[in-house]
Nucleic acid binder design. Structure first.
Lengths: 362, 362
DNA sequence: CTCGCGAATGTTAGCGCTAACACAAGCTAG
DNA sequence: CTAGCTTGTGTTAGCGCTAACATTCGCGAG
């Protein structure tokens, strides 16, 4: 636009005019320099290294910037420095509570460090689409990339990344070649299941997430390990797709089985679907069946009944991801050799009214 | 990084070597040109205007690009052309279902037109913070900005925008100086209220959103106008903050009033809170009280009971916003004089089990 | 009084790309 | 067989900024 557009029609006043002159295009560094009576380099220094400019000069330059409403052109800065102050985020379905909250956490952390966020959300979860997202961000000269895609396919995609681009992953597996910030899903599941066992239930059924999601399988692991450790029977887990709908459909199967007295659902929407299925089957919660969810969405306390759930500190995970990425950006070599950094947060069990002592229990 | 970093440790082969050498820095256009035996300009043309290059040459250039894994540097392109292929989105709390879904819709539309998305999410809704978000995006050289902030303060902020930046708003008021894509909240409220009246309810209570949100007041308007038109009593609306929590708290007041037989809640989470309050007060839904929500979140069919709600086509609104913005970007002058474009989508009422004929009614 | 040094500022060049024009062929029309 | 076009390609300059080096000035040490 700057050079291609014809000059504005004559007579259109003079927006952002300097003293006297008619200025119509946005001010550039040279304009500020001229107005302040210094060279462009000095203006640049005021922006990037104010200590190196004499206070009097600095004031003059700052005043000129204000007068002209000067705003540095980031493209030019990127071209000259190779750094953009922009981080890329690759994410799948930002409509889901988890990804959305994580993204939000990253964005807040980034903002406070004066970084901007470029998002590339994926239409599907495949190695290809992840690589494509990374490439699209790369060509935007982002300084680093956060990948929110706790999915098998992400793990594969992450192994074939360009080595010169700092990348961190959120909530992905343990054996990745990049730093990972995550919630300890396994520990969360352990807490949920222990809670149910402590209420006297013989065993705990599990409504899992999709098998190819890493969070989902970590929760299955945690659930299974507690049952094994305590010598309980391990029922076959049912796999849903995170949606309330799938929770409802699988829930009807569980509701029909009188042996089921405690269910650990892999997320809150599935737990909601399950609650409906139980209600329709005439099985009362928590009197006959106890239910625990995962996520602790803000609505969980208002489910029928209020849902006991494992709270995921998404905001904190987002902050950690940002921190890890920043470390990589500032030190691109970064601890080569050793395994990449992990930063993991323990989720917390929030007990509400959907869990109770087993009917006829201890 | 490019120029500032110290040279790589010796032994890593010569960076950017010619044929036969080890190449370490990313390839640039000049490298591709050399390999293909043409000038950089021809490479540029292959990228931007392939028709102007002879087929044989084009093939050679494309092959060279592949060989070198060449990826154009967008910063340089921006600097040279003034266009970035990036759109900015200013949004408030992308954790909420509405903004998140709209953002997602915009992102999908943008991706299919090869645009990238830069987000600036706001910590608070004030004129200042909106202007700040716009400025941060502007300095990133975005081609245009979508503002998702259906709030009074946005309206104020929008009036003082730089005139040279294409901006569209999502779901904001009617009298804005920029194009607006939105859901017709008023029509949605009208449908909800008419539905309740058609079931025989004498009148309909309203649990509103925050008064300074434009969607909220449009829904209040719709609700009030139907009642007025039909000559019904208009109860005082109760204003919440969109959260299930506020729905619960206000809901307790409504639940205590035996005159209340039908409530229209301004969104689904508030309706959820209300459902809990009614349940706790022993008032059965829908036998004693009918409830309608707004948004139709994916979980609404699994509430207790499944919630009748007004479905907002967020994805479609996102697409419209993107379209409007694209029109502005391609034609910056764009219909000056006349009022800016509006594109509004009618929401749809989805009837489920939370509404029924008034107790003892016709 | 002169040298040297640090602080403040200026100059030059170049980041990678594309607009605008220049040029070299090959062609058709007169 | 030359003017005049079209087609394909190259050359030059510059987008706005900053790294690296160059210059100027003032001041205390020798």
């Amino acid at each position: 636009m700057t050079t291609a557009a014809p000059p504005p029609p004559p007579g259109t006043g003079s927006p952002g005019a300097g003293p006297g002159g008619v200025r119509s295009r946005a001010a550039v560094m040279e304009d500020v320099a001229a107005l302040a009576g210094v060279s462009a380099m000095t203006v640049s220094r005021v922006l990037n290294d104010p200590g190196k400019v004499a206070p009097r000069t600095r004031e003059r330059v700052l005043a000129a910037m204000r007068d002209l409403d000067y705003r540095p052109n980031s493209a030019a800065r990127v071209l000259a420095t190779g750094r953009s102050g922009v981080l890329g985020v690759v994410s799948f379905d930002t409509t889901l509570y988890g990804p959305a909250s994580t993204l939000y956490g990253i964005e807040r952390a980034a903002r406070s460090a004066d970084y901007m966020i470029n998002i590339a959300s994926l239409g599907s979860l495949t190695r290809r689409s992840i690589e494509d997202g990374v490439q699209r961000l790369r060509s935007q000269s982002v300084d680093g990339i956060v990948i929110i895609a706790p999915h098998q396919s992400a793990a594969e995609g992450l192994r074939r990344l360009p080595p010169d681009m700092p990348v961190v992953a959120v909530g992905a597996g343990d054996d990745l070649p990049v730093p990972v910030a995550s919630v300890d899903h396994r520990a969360g599941a352990v807490r949920a299941v222990r809670h149910l066992l402590s209420l006297g239930h013989e065993t705990v059924w599990h409504m899992a997430g999709p098998a190819d999601w890493i969070d989902a399988s970590a929760r299955v692991d945690g659930w299974r390990s507690v049952l094994a450790e305590e010598g309980r029977e391990v029922p076959e887990p049912l796999a849903g797709d995170w949606s309330a709908r799938s929770g409802y459909e699988l829930g009807r199967r569980l509701a029909a089985d009188p042996a089921v007295t405690a269910v650990f659902a892999a997320n809150d929407p599935m737990a909601l679907g399950l609650l409906r299925a139980l209600r329709e089957a005439g099985r009362r919660v928590p009197e006959e069946v106890s239910v625990v969810g995962f996520d602790d969405v803000p609505e969980a306390p208002y489910f029928a009944p209020p849902l006991t759930s494992v709270r995921q500190p998404f905001g904190e995970v987002g902050r950690h991801a940002f921190q890890l990425l920043l470390e990589r950006v500032d030190d691109p070599g970064g601890a080569p050799g050793g395994p990449p950094a992990r930063r993991s947060v323990e989720p917390e069990l929030v007990v509400r009214e959907s869990t109770a002592v087993r009917p006829g229990g201890r």
